[in-house]
Design a protein around this nucleic acid. Sequence first.
DNA 1: GCGACAG
DNA 2: ATCTTGTCGC
Length: 221
Amino acid sequence: MPRTVAEAEAVQDRLRPLVDLVGPGPTAPRTVAGLDVAYAEDGERLAAAVTVLDAATLAVLDTAVTTGRAAFDYVPGLFAFRELPALLTALDRLTVQPDLLVCDGHGLAHPRRFGLACHLGVLTGRPAVGVGKTPLIGDWTEPGQRRGSWTPLLDGTEPVGRVLRTQDGVKPVFVSVGHRMDLDNACAQVLRLAPRYRLPETTRAADRLCRTELRRSAGRG
DNA sequence: GCGACAG
DNA sequence: ATCTTGTCGC
């Protein structure tokens, strides 16, 4: 793990070329993982969760959770270093391997084109997509109000992701490629995973799990 | 120089 | 991320 901003940026620049942008990624993944982290009030203690869902039924097939400490200060653009160690630990504890990782944060929609979803994809070798609730970089126009409507997320003239409406009238989410996926497929998968709520069921399941674990372990580990 | 800034 | 009440809508 890097300890300084300069070291962390160097790591991203070194790993960025390893991102597979060819895609298209699995059209019909059988298993999809959601990853999320919850923090205690001190912003240090955390719980990281991974949930593996059946892509067709959205039933939970496997879960893994771990507690720990933030591995890096929060710096926009270097956010991944905070949660990476804990998320990798949780991923190691899975018994059902996911065909796709759905990450809570951005992928290519990042200042150096290497957000959390790219980082997790490269380190695990698995297809990955980033789903952010708020933007980090880029300009866009409001997509239509209907579920499935989207507009390009542009960094200058470069498309780095999409602003996607996952439910009628809700705030859109920011979808970007992480690894071994193309943008069309990434958005198609996110839409399939979000049949009822704004966020993918994978993310929702992981969010519940890590929050519960954080309270259950209140105080120490 | 100033504002913006994933979770 | 987390701290927080009520409130509007299905």
